[in-house]
Amino acid sequence: MEIAFAGAYHVVMTPDGCPFSRRRFLQAAGGAAGAFAASALFAPLLQAAIGKTVDVGVSSAASPAERARRAVALVGGMKSFVSRGDVVVLKPNIGWDRTPEQAANTDPEFVVAVAEMCLAAGAGSVRVFDRTCNDARRCYVNSGIKDAVEQFARKNRVEDALRIYHVEDRKFVRTSIPNALSLKEWDLYRDALEADKIVNVPIAKHHSLAGITLGLKNMMGIMGGNRGQIHYRLPECLVDLHRRVPVALTVIDAGRVLVRNGPSGGNLADVKPFGKAFASRDVVAADGIAAEKIFRLAPRDVEHIGRAMASGLGISSVGQIRLVEG
């Protein structure tokens, strides 16, 4: 395992910083080796000055399942997030009537691997669902997730503990969000509200409004009602949603990445192999690193991630991130 302090981030992360000059500055400053040396020397001091650090695990293992397992292991293993007997809601992206190759939904093997880890950590039950955009039945089937989860549950005789099911209207609960920036009240899914832990398993992809969609945006799957309307103030709404329903662990599938025409895509030419997974207890940190590594975007330039940082939902600067690669 290689541990790199991403100290370079906080060296350049000033409130008025422009990402591109920051990057260029970085490159000019002597490349990876120099940055590594510098960060190893100065990072602890700076981190002490800014606040506590958050680990983000990055795995490049060969298979989706192995990537998921490695990424979670790098941040301490599932046992640091899920306790014995917990009711866990596992929220993948099953939003679209697309096949795994089209990379609009989380990879089924990836989902199963995370579910397996939850069970191994002692979760009493793991519930998998998403409120889809296309017909829910088609999404569950063609994403491959329904089959994969059910097959795994059958094979390991954990049909009761691990279940994938469809969202039902009657289970949405009108929920008020105190001190909301924008989303003062919304219908949220009862199972998510009542869960002990939420494990957020998005797929990284391009998004036409949000720029990219990662962990923060994936949680829209627990929202009922006319979700299109929150696009008016998406960044604020996402912050409010996460404040009300905090996520225990975010594991981002970046095996195949839809780089254009997201979030629904369809065209295989828009899908690029990336072969990575990211994991963190801090959804903002996970999204921040994923934005940088996958899309070469400075987190603050992705409006909803920037807004989440500013609002104190998670890390307030990338400088707080400790990158753990393996």
Binding site: D97, C133, S208, L209, G228, H231, Y232, N261, S264, G266
Partner: peptide, 25 residues
């Protein structure tokens, strides 16, 4: 909404199912 200068919104584009999007920005 965007045409009328009210707010951002991309809902039609994101749902458009054709593989080369029939709704573009």
């Amino acid at each position: 909404l965007p045409w009328a200068g009210q707010s951002d919104c991309i809902v039609c584009e994101e749902h458009c199912p054709t593989w080369s999007k029939a709704i573009v920005f």
